[in-house]
Design a protein around this nucleic acid. Sequence first.
DNA 1: TCAATAAATGACTTTTTAGTCATTAAATAC
DNA 2: GTATTTAATGACTAAAAAGTCATTTATTGA
Lengths: 219, 219
Amino acid sequence: MPGSTNKSIKKRRWKRRKDARPGEILDAALMLFVERGFAATKLDDVARKAGLSKGSVYLYFENKETLFRAVVREMVLPEIKRVEQQVDRYRGPAQELVRKLVYQWWSMVGESRLSGVPKLLVSEASNFPELARFFVDQVIRRVRRVFVRVLQQGIDRGEFRECDVNHAVRVLIAPLVFAAIWQHSLYPFDKDPYDVRVFLDTHLDTFLNGLLNESGQKI
Amino acid sequence: MPGSTNKSIKKRRWKRRKDARPGEILDAALMLFVERGFAATKLDDVARKAGLSKGSVYLYFENKETLFRAVVREMVLPEIKRVEQQVDRYRGPAQELVRKLVYQWWSMVGESRLSGVPKLLVSEASNFPELARFFVDQVIRRVRRVFVRVLQQGIDRGEFRECDVNHAVRVLIAPLVFAAIWQHSLYPFDKDPYDVRVFLDTHLDTFLNGLLNESGQKI
DNA sequence: TCAATAAATGACTTTTTAGTCATTAAATAC
DNA sequence: GTATTTAATGACTAAAAAGTCATTTATTGA
């Protein structure tokens, strides 16, 4: 047999994949930053998880802080835009809209790898103030704005009773964010069973029922 | 005048205060750990904040991890016991009891230095699994138990409609914990005004109204 | 097939911070 | 007042992880 058979034995030590690297590094970094926090995450571990060496990470990101900022900015923004667009499409009774938005939010954000971002930002807010500002402005407040519109619509249409919409929205959103944070922190240590879907259902039931005006019709 | 007046001029370089040190170190450590997280907190900073030198911290705590565990265990347990006792004293209609418990929880936990602990544990759960387990068992689940009792009482007395009490309790508590976490993380970066008291009021209004029997059956 | 190019490496240096300990001096006892 | 004890210090060492770069080798293209 010619040498060609031997050639298949020698295995490449690595591949050159300039285009794929940044995304893979961001993915690995997101997972580890969410799990351990910024300071406790070793770049060596990020590199290993992304399937390359630490030195190579520095080919794509200036330093650890830059990588961290990139994780938040580049992973969050595209997703939040998608959510916003989806949300804009919905029409119908406010009550139903709220339900749909909540379920949708959970399946798009809560169950995706993005669900760790709230925990990450809560943890690192004071170490990365400008990122915290970015997140509040570009994510939280935009989500609030969407829900405020829906609630106000419900009130205008007589479905809901008059109330302080700005605070009602926070009450509506808090359990969603909480659920995401919980999943990535203390949930694994909680012995009591708990189903996020049922939790969200229960929240929606009490919240919507609590907002209905007396003549309010249920769906 | 006698020389005694001159004596007051020479100033001591430090005081020996064996008894007061541990508490002061724990206080300083709690504040910094909550603000920055475990890994990003330098023992030098803790020492400075506590008014002594780093070397002295090691006279009272074996190492940084031991200090961290002590912060959580020794600051949380006494407070949680106090809350539990206070809670046990209350009697009255379930609705009113829930309101009182929530307000009380906020003024005892939410507004005290203890309010940072939920954020701290959420952030460090996966780095300190046995502390996470401790916190869930000794704090979260005990708080839940108290509220479950109250809600069940309300149902038995016919005030509230039948519902999944275990999930309802989580819905009731989530915004409380969320508020505490929020205060210590993203709140300072949020431009929209927000009053925790009003937030809690709004939550109580919708939640309790949503649970009331007259309002109709669960969807 | 063989240069030329540049992606990738990993051993190395630097920086940072945890942890130590010989020394200092405040408090106490005689 | 002096000796003794020990709380407190801060300069030091050790360990760990960030960041660098000369070298290696996959890939390209002539």
